[in-house]
């Protein structure tokens, strides 16, 4: 009691421990926002598979090519960093130390994301069909004139 009494009076005349302004920046190793780098990505979708909360969704293009659209929901992500560790390509997914910004009703983290999830599911089905078609066509092509194709390529 007496100890705290003296400490209280001491504190009264010393600098408060409160940080100025809104607080410190996050330190260097802080697990903040995940940043995606499209140039480096090889679209292996490993991050999507490994994410425990499904905060990463790829929307597949309809033509069956490997040019996927990356979608990420910072309001769903738990910032565990598992996707970054799973990423085979260096620098395609980076975990920065940026603290995610608070959103308002305009951000609408729920409904927008449901829409994306739905689209991702649908597009994946379509993409698989398109891919299968593409493969079949390629196979057909290869079957039709295998020798000439090979020769042509060699020449």
């Amino acid at each position: 009691m007496l100890k705290m009494f003296i400490e209280s009076l001491k504190n009264l005349f010393s600098e408060p421990a409160t940080l100025p302004g809104i607080g410190t920046e996050a330190p260097k190793g802080y697990r903040g926002l995940i940043v995606f780098n499209k140039e480096k990505c090889i679209f292996c979708t490993k991050c999507e598979l490994v994410c425990p909360v499904d905060a990463i969704k790829f929307i597949y293009p309809e033509d069956g090519s490997r040019n996927l659209e990356f979608n990420y929901n910072p309001f769903l992500c738990i910032y565990c960093g598992e996707c970054v560790r799973a990423c085979p390509k260096d620098g395609a997914l980076i975990q920065t130390n940026i603290v995610p910004e608070p959103g308002t009703q305009e951000d609408n983290p729920n409904e927008k994301w449901f829409e994306i999830e739905r689209r991702a599911q649908e597009s994946k089905k379509k993409w698989q069909i398109a891919l299968a078609k593409k493969r079949q066509e390629a196979l057909k092509k290869a079957k039709k004139q295998p020798p000439s194709d090979k020769k042509g390529s060699k020449k």
Binding site: I22, G23, T24, A26, Y30, P74, F75, C77, I78, Y79, C80, V99, P100, E101, P102, G103, T104, Q105, D107, P109
Partner: peptide, 14 residues
């Protein structure tokens, strides 16, 4: 909801 604060867990700064 008016404001959504993301983060697991949200930092005091956020």
């Amino acid at each position: 909801v008016d404001v959504y604060i993301p983060g697991c867990t949200a930092r005091p700064e956020a």
